[in-house]
Amino acid sequence: MQRILITGSAGFIGFHLARQLLAAGHRVHGYDGLTPYYDVALKEKRHAMLKAMPGFTATEALVEDVETLDRAGADFAPDVIIHLAAQAGVRYSLTHPRSYIETNFTGSFNVLELAKRQKVRHLLIASTSSVYGANPEMPFHETDRADHPLTVYAATKKAVEGLAHSYAHLWGLPVTLFRFFTVYGAWGRPDLAYFKFAKAILQGTPIDVYNHGELWRDFTAVEDLVEGVLRLIPLAPSAPSARGATVEGDSLSPIAPWRVVNIGNNDKIHLMDFIRTLETLLGRKAVLNLMPMQPGDVPATWADCSLLERLTGFKPETDLATGLARFVDWYRDYARA
């Protein structure tokens, strides 16, 4: 049994991860600001479900609130910290860039300071496929250069990867960053495309389809993402002086206990195929509003997840129809609530 602090515990991924850890018998302290970026009631429902499970406690505050964060960390004394809290949304960063600097960068700095003081066994930080930016080579490998982010959101996430490396090097803090790819599933975020698509299709209203549908994404079921993170928890990167043989393609830093790992579905799916699958599951046709490419968007994402498989033995491979069926079953109940 471990004591695990999760920032962003009322969020989509944090909720699923906390629930799995609690079910496995771990103690979890959730830390979440319940910001109004999307429906706060949905976040409150997620937290309420976690609070009903043994072993869960929570602090409702922002990661920018360094005093409250430090107090919560000192009181809970975590073995592991999983940092998920962030200002999300690629397009929102075009109009509200300051919130990304304050939450994603400054907030992550606060979490790194907390992890250093608490001497945690492992700090895991959520990054994103968006850091690959304009990289034309696919599938994306962790060792690819990621020097050309296209949005403020991506830039803050890439900056946090670099900041975390400095902490790993200077203070021996074991850090794993996981880059996730277009996550979908039950209890998801209403601002995400698949959630908005389902709502609009059932209501008979148009859905905005960017780049006239000529987009490809590595859609990843939230259950697969969570399983990948769970398996990475005990695999804290070791200091260079303590290493044995490394696995092929490892992204370990040569001078720090720091690693980055992709968690995707090892495939890219055409957006129109995604929409058609959702239409079939909902039993209705979508009304398409074909739009040009959005600023900061990329035509495709595709993860190479062989490092995750070599490290953990786990290969995400939930097929789209199965994963979307789980979401649709949940959404029909949620929409009626």
Results as ranks from 00 to 15, higher is better:
Leu271Asp: 00
Ala239Thr: 07
Ala321Glu: 12
Phe109Cys: 08
Asp39Asn: 14
Pro78Gln: 11
His212Asn: 15
Glu214Gly: 10
His83Glu: 14
Lys51Leu: 12
Phe274Tyr: 01
Thr312Ala: 13
Gly172Leu: 15
Ala24Cys: 13
Met138Leu: 15
Leu170His: 14
Gln203Arg: 10
Val226Pro: 04
Ala286Tyr: 00
His169Phe: 12
Leu5Ser: 00
Tyr31Val: 07
His47Leu: 15
Val63Leu: 07
Ser306Gly: 13
Gly228Lys: 07
Pro78Ile: 05
Asn289Cys: 09
Gly172Asp: 15
Val209Gln: 02
Gly89Leu: 01
Leu252Cys: 05
Ala245Ser: 15
Val131Gln: 00
Gly8Asn: 04
Asp65Glu: 07
Glu102Leu: 12
Tyr100Gln: 03
Lys199Leu: 13
Asp267Pro: 03
Asp267Ser: 15
Val40Trp: 06
Gly228Cys: 13
Pro299Glu: 12
Ala159Arg: 09
Arg3Ala: 11
Ser166Trp: 14
Asn104Trp: 00
Thr35His: 05
Ala256Thr: 04
His29Ser: 13
Pro240Glu: 08
Lys157Ile: 03
Pro54Cys: 02
Thr106Ile: 15
Asn266Ile: 00
Arg276Met: 11
His141Arg: 15
Val28Glu: 03
Glu309Pro: 08
Thr205Phe: 03
Ile255Leu: 12
Asp297Ser: 08
Leu62Ala: 09
Tyr184Ser: 09
Phe12Ser: 01
Pro206Gly: 02
Thr57Tyr: 08
Arg284Met: 07
Phe56Glu: 02
Ala74His: 07
Asp65Gly: 02
Thr182Asp: 12
Tyr210His: 09
Ala155Ser: 03
Asp65Asn: 06
Gly204Gln: 12
Ala303Ile: 04
Gln87Thr: 03
Ile6Ala: 10
Pro190Val: 02
Ala303Met: 01
Thr322Val: 14
Glu279Leu: 08
Gly323His: 05
Tyr334Thr: 05
Asp79Lys: 13
Ser241Gln: 15
Thr128Val: 04
Gly30Trp: 05
Ala245Gln: 12
Ile233Cys: 11
Ser130Met: 02
Ala300Val: 06
Thr156Leu: 01
Pro149Ile: 07
Pro36Trp: 12
Thr156Ser: 10
Gly25Trp: 14
